[in-house]
């Protein structure tokens, strides 16, 4: 023990050397982000310079082999499916947080919280598997083919629900107890206290949590890929199959070459930019307290 330590002892007897080693690690960690950004740009550079960014929006469709790089339908599908998922998950998540904080007895609330945490831990591929084998056939019975915007939104909403429920729960718990006492002293009902006092007081953090959940929904790949049907089109009804940006990358990276491959990196950049924007907004909203 002592002998093996003394061989490295110079590392911690001399703070200068240790400091440099740790500094180097920190630089490496910081540089990683730059490295990722550099490689995304490097790989997408050929198409960005040759055809420009606007054609990714204005082109008539996604036929990369015929030099048509219209990402608009997939961008649209990504935004629509994420919005729908948030619209479904947000009320459920907030209601479930209210249940936890105000209604359920302590033990049940605790058990319920661990259930939600457990759900947060189920991998996206498992949600996809379940969606494809249970949910898609179920929807298909009413409106074939089943693999659709609806299926993707439902699965996605299940996946982001824990995020919203847990962040709202945490947000409510930071509302000062005195608000609750004050509201009770005024003779407000439980409903009025929750709706008119507690939720407004916590709204910034709740909003931040919802934005983070939206960012997660936008970046989600596997579950959506497995249940959405993956037809490149603007979904016009809930039962239309559609393809998201992430699914497109996962499906086509395996065989894409040249400009096609480069345009997939462009969509990666685009996606990252949107997700970053949302995360920044969430960060601003919460005053820099919430972590993704």
């Amino acid at each position: 023990m002592i002998s093996s330590k003394s061989s490295f002892s110079f590392l911690w007897r001399n703070d200068k050397i240790l400091g440099r080693v740790l500094w180097a690690s920190a630089c490496l960690s910081t540089a990683l982000l730059i490295l990722i950004a550099m490689f995304l740009v490097k790989e997408s550079w050929p198409v960005l310079t040759s055809i420009g960014i606007t054609r990714f929006i204005t082109d008539a469709g996604w036929y990369p082999l015929e030099k048509l790089f219209g990402l608009a339908p997939m961008l649209g599908a990504t935004v629509i499916v994420s919005t729908l998922a948030v619209l479904i998950a947000a009320p459920l998540g907030i209601a479930s947080a209210i249940f936890c904080s105000f209604i359920a007895p302590r033990r049940i609330a605790q058990a319920y919280r661990s259930l939600i945490a457990l759900l947060a831990g189920i991998p996206s591929v498992a949600y996809g598997l379940w969606g494809l084998t249970v949910l898609v056939p179920l929807i298909g019975q009413f409106q074939p083919p089943g693999a659709s915007l609806l299926a993707a939104s439902l699965i996605l909403s299940l996946m982001i629900l824990p995020t919203i429920a847990l962040t709202t729960d945490a947000a409510i718990s930071t509302v000062p107890k005195s608000y609750l006492q004050g509201a009770t002293a005024l003779g407000l009902t439980r409903e009025a206290t929750i709706i008119k006092v507690i939720l407004p007081a916590a709204r910034a953090s709740i909003g931040a949590g919802i934005l983070l959940a939206a960012a997660r929904a936008l970046g989600e790949t596997m579950a959506v890929l497995m249940v959405a049907g993956n037809v490149v089109q603007f979904p016009t009804s809930l039962f239309d199959p559609m393809r998201t940006l992430t699914a497109n990358m996962a499906l086509e990276m395996a065989y894409a070459t040249g400009d096609h491959r480069a345009s997939l990196f462009v969509s990666g950049l685009m996606l990252t930019a949107i997700v970053m924007a949302l995360a920044t907004l969430a960060w601003r909203l919460s005053g820099g307290r919430v972590h993704g």
């Binding site: 970046g219 992430t246 990358m249 990252t272």
Partner: peptide, 9 residues
């Protein structure tokens, strides 16, 4: 916050 598919790329 970077989506996992982007890590894949």
């Amino acid at each position: 916050g970077v989506p996992s598919i982007v890590f894949g790329l």
